[in-house]
């Protein structure tokens, strides 16, 4: 034993190579932040371009609207981030969001109070998420297919509940859209506050809980995570529950925004959410990304729309073209990062 310890000590000095990368010369930025940094650069560039081309672009009012008008998408994108971090995908969120608007609208029309209707709408999202999670984990169905099925199911249920658009007049929902003036044109709505709160909770969950770290570990390698003894099954089901819940909550925010429950709400919104997450620097293969990046991603999408509105003469389809181009650039950038890492 004593001799063993001596040999251990004797070995200590002449082995610099085993200490790995610690002694790399200059302090470089952690690679993991590079994609998000790219998003920040794009966002700043767009603000500069917008600010230099149009009057009032950088006003408090425009910036506040950016957050307010996209609060539902922020919530949905946050849920999507959890799923994509594990290496999955959730195509059902747009339809689940619509279902949430329909359920709440239908319940209000039939005389249910807000304290029943609101939890019910959110719970519907959570339930669909749970069903998807079970399909993905227990029956090992590809997330793409499982969530596609959930998307059709939710969209179909919307038509069953609300064949026509149902107006929402419930005071609680209407209140979600009240503008609280913060001065200088800046304002915030309860919807915006909820969205920001969701972001904070998601951030803390991902970075300061064992569940959150397991999400990243699964994205890094599901097999490894399992062999490390992490609760892979529970975590994988839970991320879809979170995504479904976020979509349900997003539906309520959208209902406040549009004052109606309508079965055609949010068609293709899942793709906007995925685009926001990817532009926000999260790798589609999982394991790398930040929820704050997704928020930036939503803001980038929102800014594109704002710029095109300011331009006035451009068709709104240009939004899609710019988003598509940006998405392509970001995916290629990520690919380069991954290749360089190898």
């Amino acid at each position: 034993m004593a001799t063993d310890e001596m040999t251990v000590k004797a070995r200590k000095q002449p082995e610099p190579k085993l200490t790995g990368a610690v002694h790399r010369s200059r302090p470089t930025l952690d690679r993991r932040y590079l994609p998000v940094l790219g998003t920040v650069v794009v966002l700043v560039l767009m603000l500069i371009i917008g600010g230099s081309r149009y009057d009032n672009f950088l006003s408090g009012r425009v910036m506040a609207n950016l957050l307010i008008n996209n609060s539902f998408l922020i919530v949905v994108a946050v849920g999507m981030t959890f799923v994509i971090l594990t290496g999955g995908i959730d195509l059902s969120v747009g339809a689940v969001l619509a279902l949430s608007t329909c359920i709440s609208a239908w319940m209000f029309v039939h005389g249910w109070p807000a304290y029943v209707a609101i939890p019910a709408a959110i719970l519907a999202g959570a339930l669909i998420g749970w069903a998807v999670g079970v399909m993905v984990h227990v029956f090992e169905i590809q997330p793409f297919i499982a969530t596609l099925a959930a998307m059709f199911l939710a969209r179909g249920l919307c038509y069953v509940i609300a064949p026509e658009s149902i107006p929402i007049t419930d005071p609680t929902i209407v209140k979600l859209g009240t503008r609280w003036d913060l001065g200088g044109g800046w304002a915030i709505t309860p919807s915006g506050v909820i969205a920001l709160a969701v972001v904070v909770v998601a951030f803390v969950t991902l970075h300061y809980t064992r569940f959150g770290r397991t999400v990243y570990a699964i994205g890094g390698g599901e097999q490894s995570a399992r062999l490390m003894g992490l609760p892979v099954a529970r975590t994988k089901v839970l991320v879809y529950v979170i995504s479904g819940t976020c979509a349900g909550l997003g539906g309520l925010l959208f209902a406040a925004f549009s004052s109606s429950g309508y079965s055609l709400t949010g068609v293709g919104m899942e793709l906007d959410a995925i685009a926001a997450v990817v532009i926000g620097g999260t790798l589609l293969t999982g394991g790398s990304g930040f929820v704050l990046g997704s928020v930036l991603g939503v803001l980038v999408l929102g800014l594109i729309q704002t710029i095109i509105t300011f331009e006035g003469t451009l068709s709104s389809w240009w939004t899609k073209i710019v988003i598509g181009a940006l998405l392509l650039v970001f995916v290629i950038l990520q690919r380069l990062l991954v290749v360089r890492r190898r």
Binding site: R213, T214, G220, G221, S224, A225, L227, M228, L230, G287
Partner: peptide
């Protein structure tokens, strides 16, 4: 090696046993 290389050394050592 069955660790996840997207995380730090500390996390790989402590995953599931982080001090709270």
């Amino acid at each position: 090696v069955n660790l996840t290389d997207n995380l730090s050394v500390a996390e790989n050592v402590m995953l599931g046993h982080e001090i709270r």
